[in-house]
């Protein structure tokens, strides 16, 4: 699971008010280099919840993202490179997604988060 996917996922238990972001608890992750596509990064930037991305990046030991970001930063090549790395090059293999609101933990196994709900949660 890349951090871009993490940035979309919300807790899906019935009755949850916000459910986003899920706190990433990463146990194992890998990094795979991908070609940087600046147009894509500019396209996706306004859709990203920055604080959630920065938090998830810290959970995998990547602390190079600023706490806050605005569109003007997209002119910086250095910023694009960090944004790209956090968003697309880190794959969480094992761990969990934790919802602070409900206390529910969704496990991540072989890179796949299990978002299936139990009967009493739907």
């Amino acid at each position: 699971m890349r951090l871009l996917t993490h940035n979309m996922l919300s807790c899906n238990i019935k009755g949850v008010a916000n459910g986003f972001p899920l706190r990433l608890e990463a146990e194992k992750w890998v990094e795979k280099e991908v070609e940087l596509n600046a147009d894509f990064l500019r396209h996706i930037f306004p859709k990203i919840e920055w604080k959630a991305l920065a938090g998830a990046a810290r959970a995998v030991g990547y602390c190079e993202l600023p706490e806050e970001a605005d569109a003007a930063m997209l002119d910086s090549e250095d910023f694009l490179r960090r944004f790209h790395h956090a968003l697309l090059e880190i794959h969480v293999e094992e761990g969990a997604l934790f919802c602070p609101e409900t206390g529910r933990r969704f496990s991540i196994t072989k890179g796949i988060p299990n978002m299936l709900l139990r009967e009493d949660e739907v």
Binding site: M8, L9, N12, L116
Partner: peptide, 28 residues
């Protein structure tokens, strides 16, 4: 996942019921 690995393509998977999927809208 095996198919993706065989083709050397990186794609993400989520184990979920589409009906119960909760995503922030418009990122996709």
């Amino acid at each position: 996942s095996i198919n993706a690995a065989d083709m050397e393509l990186d794609i993400d998977f989520i184990w979920c019921d589409i009906n119960k999927l909760r995503w922030r809208d418009d990122v996709v």
